[in-house]
Design a protein around this nucleic acid. Structure first.
Lengths: 148, 148
DNA sequence: CATTAACTCTAGTAAATAAGTAGGATATCA
DNA sequence: TGATATCCTACTTATTTACTAGAGTTAATG
């Protein structure tokens, strides 16, 4: 399951994507408009900032703005930052591979075989769908629109 | 993430799939061979039984056996029984749809759009890959072999 | 130049979930 | 009827999730 935190992150990013990058938006504005707990959102935006997705400005006229254009921010990256690897098993992750502690033989593991397929098809979607892809377009041809 | 419980369930089913259905297997044998905590495995098999995936026999010569042939048991069903819906969001599930509590407008929700795509591509794999599909075959052509 | 209002950062906390354990009840076979 | 298997309810312990609190830092402004 996607965490609440990841949903908040996506909502915040989509909100920032609608704003002008030259006018940073207050955390409190995003929190109010998207009904996200403000203090929680602070932590989330900080995390997104550390990973280079947003810029922040301190002081009285501070706020947040996207660090890239909406077509350069992919859902896969956001989810990895907030929730960790896309794969359902550590041993099926390609960006954060880890052995399963209790796995006898990874080469022949039937579960891993299946979950690798799932992780790949998931990543194919999430790493090719940007904020821009879902902002204007309807639900049709989303994946094709992402260049697959 | 796939729960440990779901992994145990799959391992147990794959183990039963290798056995003759006319000779039920003791929980203790599966637990030993697959290194699954026995009492925990009891609960898991009971759950799989209630959902019709396995048969059980009580008393001294009791044990468990598959209730279907391995080509009729799909990973999707196993995961749904043990871990719940495949979708990453309640509102993106097709077998167990539920509204997200904090969603303003489901029709226009960008996050849902994306997660619906992910859930569909995941289900396409998991609901078309059976125990039999991974038992003999190698890793190549897994999905094609499942009839996609 | 002090005040105000924004972001930054470290902790802490309550509730839910995950991963088991314990132990008795029930069924079957020899 | 005793041994040994599954069945079932309840409990426990650790981790994770979803926040909250509060002090610190930075920058505009009157």
């Amino acid at each position: 399951m996607l965490s609440q935190k990841a949903k908040y992150a996506m909502r915040a990013l989509l909100y920032l994507a609608q704003a002008q990058p030259e006018n940073p938006v207050f955390i409190s504005e995003i929190a109010d408009q998207q009904s996200v707990p403000k203090k929680f959102l602070e932590l989330i935006l900080l995390d997104l900032k550390r990973h280079g997705l947003v810029h922040s400005y301190r002081g009285k006229k501070g706020g947040y703005a996207l660090a890239k254009t909406p077509d350069q921010i992919y859902f896969g990256q956001v989810i990895r930052i907030i929730d960790g690897p896309l794969a359902q098993l550590p041993c099926a992750s390609r960006t954060a591979y880890r052995r399963c502690d209790d796995c006898e033989n990874e080469q022949t593991c039937e579960i891993r075989q299946v979950m690798l397929q799932v992780r790949d098809s998931t990543a194919r979607i999430l790493d090719n769908t940007s904020l821009a892809d879902v902002m204007v377009k309807g639900t049709a041809e989303l994946v094709e629109g992402a260049g697959i």
